[in-house]
Design a protein around this nucleic acid. Sequence first.
DNA 1: GTTCCAACTTATCCGGAATCAAGGCTGTCG
DNA 2: CGACAGCCTTGATTCCGGATAAGTTGGAAC
Lengths: 255, 255
Amino acid sequence: MFPQSARCPLVLRGQSNDSATSILPVETARLCQLLAQAPLFADLTDSEIAHFIPGVREVLAAKGDILFHRGDPCNGFHLILEGQIKLTFLSPDGHEKVIEILRPGQTFGEAIMFVDKPYMVMAQALGDSRLFHISQQVVFEQMDREPRFCRKIIAGLSRRLHQLIADVESYSLRSGRDRVIGYLLREEERDGEPAPAGRVSIRLPTSKSTIASRLNLTQEHFSRILHDLIAADLIEVQGRTINVPDIARLRESLG
Amino acid sequence: MFPQSARCPLVLRGQSNDSATSILPVETARLCQLLAQAPLFADLTDSEIAHFIPGVREVLAAKGDILFHRGDPCNGFHLILEGQIKLTFLSPDGHEKVIEILRPGQTFGEAIMFVDKPYMVMAQALGDSRLFHISQQVVFEQMDREPRFCRKIIAGLSRRLHQLIADVESYSLRSGRDRVIGYLLREEERDGEPAPAGRVSIRLPTSKSTIASRLNLTQEHFSRILHDLIAADLIEVQGRTINVPDIARLRESLG
DNA sequence: GTTCCAACTTATCCGGAATCAAGGCTGTCG
DNA sequence: CGACAGCCTTGATTCCGGATAAGTTGGAAC
């Protein structure tokens, strides 16, 4: 978990307590650069982004670390710099359901920050991760100061709502097989432009059991579906790498 | 369908075409009053609300009328004044899934308006309904002018996101029975303060088959669950009215 | 190499919910 | 009053996917 060799250029690290700490001026430019990577901050000027810095805290999480539990109070949101985070809830009888697998550049926890309620989900690091926590306070201040930032937030929330509705759609009226195919296609489109046809290779971001849960499947069922797809010559599986001989054919095989 | 006796005090009515039309000054106060009912406009002053009026169009929909289909372009959002609207999607093989049953005071279509994509869902009137359509243009203008309105929008989107996540949770890890019980409890809390215990009566807002779909159940399965609950002495059913002898006991019977 | 452990696969069994198919109620409209 | 239409219920059957329980693989540690 985070070997000493980890490059970690920031003054703030592993501050597991709650007090937001200010950052040395020399770091400002670097921080702005990091923040600007997130879609939420894209298009804002450096001086606008600089306003957030007093509310930014770096968070390091080793694989398996839990950032927050369901029921914890929320006083800001997170931005992922490195690593992966999963958002899950626990059923009354102990089973867990992954609702999102998040990667660098993505943010989470904004919505709940605005409704001022405790977290409904748990956030856990899937691998060693580095993130920023941006305090509610600076967000609210900046919202009052800069309408463009409000627009960004609204756009982000709307997009997420949109995706979530698409999820509900696929959970309710697509088969397990179609959900898997849909996931593979989205995964392929994520990095770079979508290939129109031909052979592509997809690397799963995390364990199959986690992805299975994300797709509302058991790991067993996911495994069976993958093997069905192999039998249909639609994919080849080598560990976490999925090779697709013909992505166009995979696309057509959707319900 | 809208008998002639329907009270309909507005100059604009039944304008099924697309051009937004302005409204006579004398109507302004009444319009503001109607708009102010919606949570989205609550706390805004009359003069602030008045800015929306040029973009407001009244829409009348008879039972069964479709307000928009999936794929239609979106150029504003709707506010329900009277009646009920259901939001659904259609599966590739013709089945429909209700994602929301909306009632007076509620708005829909904002999120998709901000992402600037066509509707993903279909909106259909469950009964004769009256609504306002508020154009994208005046919303954007007002957002630039009034940060408090942005906050309202953000609050509304966040709340909806929150509810949707709760839906995903219940679809994925609650049984059909628990979803029905949860629905009844929410329905009871909706009108007035929740009764702590004792006998309450709940009126279903629409047909059982529609509610079944909203809960991701077939109507047959929904019917069976209701009869299970009757057998367990948790409820009594008379048409669309559900009597609960002891709401506290119903609450406890949740997983 | 060997050991160990987690992740994955495979097989079998089981159950909740969907589907298919009648049949009953209720209201409404000739 | 009768008949039709919607809506709901009920029963029989099927099936998808979950539960459980062994195996198997592969990688990391020693």
